[in-house]
Amino acid sequence: MNEQSSLPPVPLADSIDRAIQRIGLSIAWAYVLLVLVIMTQVILRKGFSSGLIVLEELQWHLYAVGVMFGLSYAQTTNSHIRVDLFYSSFRARTKHIIEILGILILVLPFVSVIFIHSLDFVHDSWRINEHSESPSGLPWRWLIKTVIPLSMLMLGLAVLSRLYRDTVLLFKGNA
């Protein structure tokens, strides 16, 4: 797996990344919880004929939490997949410039659009105290929807950290 060690150190960016990783690694245990919830559901349903819709819903809640917060973590570990056909042979300086332009023109607009529009989305859900569409499902639907703006904030932060890192490296010219 791609490791962060491939990125040259830049103090401020490093501490932001480390913070995001620390938070991320605690959220990541949602997946262990997910394994346990699935096992519980299977045992309850087949063993005791009492599967629960709440557990079914909890499964995708946990998965969604893992996926959404993972985005910023994968950004700090530089894991997002690139087509490296030409990229791998670029000079470091070219890579920095591409990274900076890519973040400014593509990533930040994309993340901002999701963040801004998610606010209304969450607010509406919170205003009416949205519940699962199944009467026997989980309450507080707005809570899982809140994951969208929060995770986008973290992703935005991780992206800005990367922007800062590449800008510093570009001007330091240590290519």
């Binding site: 997002h80 997949i81 690139r82 087509v83 490296d84 056909l85 030409f86 990229y87 791998s88 670029f90 890579k95 591409i98 990274e99 890519g102 023109i105 593509l106 990533v107 607009p109 994309f110 659009v113």
Partner: peptide
């Protein structure tokens, strides 16, 4: 074209959409 610059695939897809 942007795919081959090496910018992550996910961000090229999303960013091109917004643009």
């Amino acid at each position: 074209a942007l795919l081959f610059t090496g910018i992550p695939v996910a961000w090229v897809l999303g960013g091109i959409g917004v643009l």
